[in-house]
Design a protein around this nucleic acid. Structure first.
Lengths: 227, 227
DNA sequence: CCCCGCAAAAAATTCGAAATTAACGACCCG
DNA sequence: CGGGTCGTTAATTTCGAATTTTTTGCGGGG
């Protein structure tokens, strides 16, 4: 696919950007920690130039902060910040879902349905007990939500959504909240795709808002317990 | 001010970023045009490194597009794109204004009132006939709208708003639509600050939405006439 | 004892050129 | 005559070192 070709022709700058982004989101690079250039150069095995280019690109998503003449730091996490991420996601995703349902054609609805089927078939946790998320499930989950909101193309708002999603994922990865009951998520997703296929905007938006809030509440608990 | 100090310690990368951004917004660098690195290096009198860093930062705001292994281009303009910018602005600014009025304290309301007074005192056009916008007025206009929406601090949404504002300004600068009647804008601004001081969310949001639509309609006309 | 200023060290920034990749055009072959 | 291939040229990307700036540690007043 086009992804393959893009990877083949990707510059070092772009490849480092993706690895760096992943390391910030996963928590491998801790919030607030200094991003010493020499250390990163070693870590990713590249020169100064692509490294700095990647860091500046990431700084535009607020996952890292750039300070003139004093380098880069991983963005801090905190209750106030996360509340804003959740609130912005709830608002933005509601609007995008509404637009999608109104403007999306049948091909879109089918893509969403397929994404739901794929997600539904996967187990959420590696082993039921541990509460460790299954990487495949995470990817399918992201894809499902992405397809849901992609019925109407929104150049800019899609970018905003991607940024907010990354920030959310970071909090989940770092704070490792109480795992959610798999049944509840499955039910949410089923209701979501159901409402979408019936073109029931009101229901779909309601379910999505609750889905976002439910998924955030355990993280908010952790943040409120230990600031 | 802190601005002064920041300028003093700003890196070349940051200074080039601001100049590049201004040149894209003003239209000095035409939509769709190729950003040849050698040409830009000459134009801004800097080396490759800060230039590329600035270009990547701008690419994160969608004002320029980066293509791996084939350089950078200024983003295209078009009707569909502008409609999305306007729609996103209307939605986002409504939400931010609502939050501002609810959460903003008296100090905020006073800042907004001062910004309005400063704006109201300035003439909108250089000379009434030409329809050329007064640069001072533009800056005061931006500042007024920024203050209006800054009653509640929103790290991420504020960034989104800044991006949308830049895109809007670019269309205005490039397409040079029929100038708006100065009286109408003055009336909009007066109603806005009035509603804010009375903490009338419903009225303020209504006026703001119409203000955005009114300001966009002449630009939409130009886009619809000549794609 | 703390604060200020002054080196020395460390870190970030920037440059110019080398290495890599895409774009262009002439040439050959079907 | 059209389509594809191979040089050649032009452009982008990358590196390593030089430059500039911040940080750190130390000694001398206040």
């Amino acid at each position: 696919m086009s992804e393959e070709r893009e990877k083949a022709t990707a510059t070092l700058s772009t490849r480092v950007y993706h690895r760096l982004r992943q390391d910030v989101i996963s928590g491998a690079l801790a919030p607030g920690s200094k991003l010493a250039l020499e250390m990163l150069r070693e870590r990713y095995g590249v020169g100064m130039t692509p490294l700095r280019e990647a860091l500046y690109r990431l700084s535009a998503t607020l996952l890292v902060q750039a300070h003139d003449q004093r380098g880069f730091r991983v963005a801090e996490i905190g209750l106030a910040h996360f509340e804003q991420v959740v609130s912005a996601r709830e608002r933005l995703e509601s609007l995008l879902l509404e637009d999608s349902i109104r403007a999306g054609d049948d091909a879109w609805a089918q893509r969403a349905a397929r994404a739901h089927a794929a997600l539904d078939a996967l187990p959420m946790y590696e082993q039921a007990a541990t509460g460790v998320l299954n990487a495949e499930w995470q990817s399918a989950h992201h894809h499902f939500h992405y397809e849901l909101l992609s019925g109407a193309r929104h150049f800019i708002q899609d970018m905003f959504h991607a940024i907010l999603w990354d920030h959310s994922a970071r909090y989940r990865n770092i704070l490792r909240p109480e795992p959610l009951p798999e049944d509840m998520l499955k039910a949410d997703h089923a209701r979501l795709i159901g409402a979408v296929l019936e073109r029931d905007v009101e229901m779909a938006v309601l379910v999505l808002r609750r889905h976002i809030r439910n998924g955030s509440s355990a993280i908010l608990d952790v943040l409120r317990r230990s600031p």
